Simulated assay, not measured.
Amino acid sequence: MRFRVWFRRLALGLTAVVATVFAIALPVAYAGEPPNSDLPSRYLTRVESRYVETDLARFHYTVSGSGSPVVLIAGGGLWGYSWRDVAPALAQQHTVYAVDLPSQGYTELRSAGFAFDLPAMAEAIAVFLDAVGLDRTALVGHSWGGAWSLYFAEQHPERVERLVLLDSPGLDAEKAPITPLFQTPVVGELLNDLTTRSFYTDSIRGTFVHKDLVTDELIDEFYSPFARPANRAGFLALWRNLDYRLTDAGLDQVSAPTLVLWGGDDEWLPPSQATRLADRIPDADAVIVPGCGHTVHEDCPAAVIPRITAFLS
């Protein structure tokens, strides 16, 4: 017992030391770069971009296609641009909504007391669905977006037709290695505030195996809305407030057929979580895609998109 206490204290101490060094090194490594970016989105000139007003938020979303509805929810620090290859493929058979939730993209939060935790993000999904008139839909979520979708499916099974989870946390298990840095007081604020375009690029590149796909255009599209102060603040709050004990406890409440897709070379969350997650959901299958990273649908679109379209068909 004493050894366990000692080991835990040692681990916490090492985390604190690494976090302090990281916080000192970050502004030096990326000195001279502005933290913000105001580049307009060229992607939004090529798609149907809409807003819907609610008391909770002014939700930004894109819509395409016709048929049964599918709602796409991007991962943390990303937005609807993440689905630029997925949405057109699904739009051949479905009406596809790619929504930015609070802290993402071009959505503007109206509620000052928004909690940025799993219940709040699931409620945001419900508010958006109500606002665009969807009683029931298929949900596709990546990373944090998958965790929010999973919790929504647990709490509102009657509203979810099918569920696709891409490299999505949901187990009370291993977390992304960078989590302790964002959760450390002061260090998390420094790391969040000093995330320049270059540091953001390095972070995104770490979620891809095929590094050549991380183009200047991709970073321009992602970084500009991420750099908004409100989005940064929400991003940090989510690091600290997402409690996967909630999703873990409710996995048997998911009634929708579920596909769990995972990059075999995911460096953020171990691929073993895919099968462990699918084993706990009543009607779920897991597929691990070799040679792909955490952002699996962008890293390996040719392997992943047909699996999503087939499952939703």
Rank of each mutant, 00 (worst) to 15 (best):
Q93F: 08
R240D: 04
R307G: 00
F222R: 10
A120I: 08
E298W: 05
P290D: 14
L261G: 02
G77F: 05
S272L: 01
V140S: 02
T107D: 08
V28Q: 12
L166N: 02
G13T: 06
G32I: 09
R232L: 08
V260K: 04
L26E: 12
Q92K: 14
L277F: 00
T195W: 03
I305A: 10
W268M: 13
V254G: 01
I281G: 08
N36G: 15
R245S: 11
T201H: 12
F3T: 13
P34I: 10
E48D: 15
R280I: 10
E33G: 07
T95S: 08
S224I: 02
Y30P: 00
D193R: 15
L14W: 14
W239R: 07
G293F: 03
S103Y: 13
S313K: 10
Y51A: 14
L261H: 02
H156Q: 14
W79N: 07
E154Q: 14
E174V: 07
I288Q: 07
E174A: 13
V63C: 01
R280Q: 13
R197F: 02
L277N: 07
A87S: 14
G75H: 01
T201N: 08
E161R: 12
L236I: 07
D252W: 03
V52Y: 11
L277W: 04
A153N: 09
L171F: 03
G188L: 03
T95I: 07
G67K: 06
V260N: 01
P229E: 10
T184H: 03
V63N: 00
A256C: 09
D265T: 08
Y223Q: 10
D193I: 00
A173E: 07
L251Q: 05
G206Y: 06
P69S: 05
T258Q: 11
G141N: 09
D283R: 12
T195E: 10
